[in-house]
């Protein structure tokens, strides 16, 4: 588990990496930036390149074509970084675990720090998950 410094709690750059999602979790993540929830006031920003990111939001069940790519993205991200499994497909694959093409939940492939279940998790749940993590880092360091 990567530990991030206390200074990271005020400013997080977020990169959204989708494995094999149904798109719902991705839309709810983008909804966090929309005017109703607005995470920019909490210091979080969406960035376009994994090198700029501190938080990797990973959605979707991982299928065979994507496995080595998600590992590559994790390696390309500048450390320290936090990996968040958003949605029940990333946490535990739900109905797709019987499929011939999926490779196991996300934590078998890259180390995961936060799990946010839900199908899809509401934007409030995503923000609450990140806020809980920030609080736990503040208390620890």
């Amino acid at each position: 588990m990567q530990s991030i410094d206390n200074k990271f709690t005020k400013s997080l750059f977020v990169f959204h990496a989708a494995c094999s999602p149904c798109n719902n979790c991705d839309i709810e993540i983008l909804d966090c930036i929309a005017p109703k929830y607005d995470i920019e006031r909490l210091g979080m920003q969406l960035v376009g390149s994994p090198r700029h990111a501190d938080v990797l939001l990973v959605t979707g069940a991982v299928n065979k074509k994507v496995v080595h790519r998600i590992k590559m993205i994790y390696e390309q991200t500048a450390k320290p970084c936090v990996v968040v499994a958003v949605g029940s497909c990333a946490c535990s694959e739900i109905i797709f675990r019987e499929s011939y093409n999926t490779c196991g939940p996300l934590d078998k492939i890259i180390p995961v720090d936060i799990y946010i279940p839900g199908c899809p998790p509401r934007p409030e749940a995503i923000i609450a998950g990140l806020a809980k993590y920030i609080k736990s880092r503040k208390n620890a360091g």
């Binding site: 200074k7 400013s11 750059f13 607005d38 920019e40 006031r41 210091g43 500048a78 450390k79 320290p80």
Partner: peptide
């Protein structure tokens, strides 16, 4: 129609970037 960041946000962003690894 959003709220926007706090006054010191650009400073926090820069301060945090100095703590990340340079690839």
């Amino acid at each position: 129609w959003r709220v926007g960041p706090g006054l010191l946000q650009p400073y926090y962003d820069i301060r945090k970037l100095f703590l990340k690894e340079v690839i």
